[in-house]
């Protein structure tokens, strides 16, 4: 039962990542990220219940609270204030992006078979999902121009790393988890401010225009 739930949530995370690739509206993308984080929380709770590891509850709560609520709220506020709501021209159109992400998922799964199987026998699913999400996140960073999408891509990568860590070790020490969570929060805050500055300066949040800063 717990294994099924685990694989289901992991798969859900992968689906949200794919939806993000297919989505141009910024608000929806942020909500997708929130959903993804909640699913990560579910994964953590499942492992905590199955293995009887109470510290993982804290992790799950942090994940859901910070990444599922606080960060999406903050990003939405940023988007709202700037008034730019859509990713207009990605470097690659949506169908092509989806195809490439499919290929990346294949790569991720192919590689994950090399990892040792954990006690539950589902580790390679989790790791496969994690690696695929990591690659998709990187791909998003490469192809999207808007600063907010870049932040979301970074956060997706972060979620993916977290998922892989859960899959391999069934939970890192609590101190590490806390540290990572606050790191992410701070990064988002800083990036949010940066986005404001970029928009002020260029009247756009197109990151590719940053190259104009060159002397």
């Amino acid at each position: 039962m717990s294994n099924n739930l685990l694989v289901l949530s992991a798969a859900g995370m992968l689906v949200t990542a794919f939806l993000m690739v297919g989505q141009k509206a910024l608000f929806t993308a942020i909500r997708l990220y929130g959903a993804q984080s909640w699913l990560l929380g579910v994964v953590a709770v499942t492992i905590a219940l199955a293995d009887d590891r109470p510290p993982l509850f804290v992790t799950a709560a942090l994940t859901a609270g910070l990444k599922g609520l606080l960060i999406p709220w903050f990003l939405m506020r940023v988007v709202d204030r700037i008034g730019i709501r859509r990713e207009i021209e990605p470097f690659l159109n949506v169908p092509a992006s989806l195809l490439i992400c499919l290929a990346l998922t294949v790569v991720g799964y192919r590689v994950s078979t090399g990892f040792p199987e954990g006690a539950r026998g589902v580790a390679h699913h989790v790791i496969g999902v994690g690696l695929s999400m990591l690659l998709i996140g990187l791909f998003l960073m490469v192809t999207r121009k808007k600063a907010v999408t870049q932040i979301l891509a970074l956060l997706t990568v972060e979620n993916a790393v977290f998922l892989i860590a859960l899959g391999i070790t069934s939970g890192m020490p609590l101190v590490v988890e806390l540290g990572i969570s606050f790191d992410v929060l701070l990064a988002v805050l800083v990036l949010g401010i940066l986005v404001h500055r970029i928009v002020d300066r260029f009247e756009s949040m197109d990151v590719s225009r940053l190259s104009q800063l060159k002397g």
């Binding site: 790569v107 590689v111 121009k145 940053l210």
Partner: peptide, 20 residues
């Protein structure tokens, strides 16, 4: 920026395929 990120991605995928 995007070009550099693309290098990272391509290299990462390449390494994963090669080592995997």
């Amino acid at each position: 920026l995007h070009a550099y990120l693309a290098y990272v991605l391509v290299l990462g995928v390449g390494l994963l395929i090669w080592l995997g």
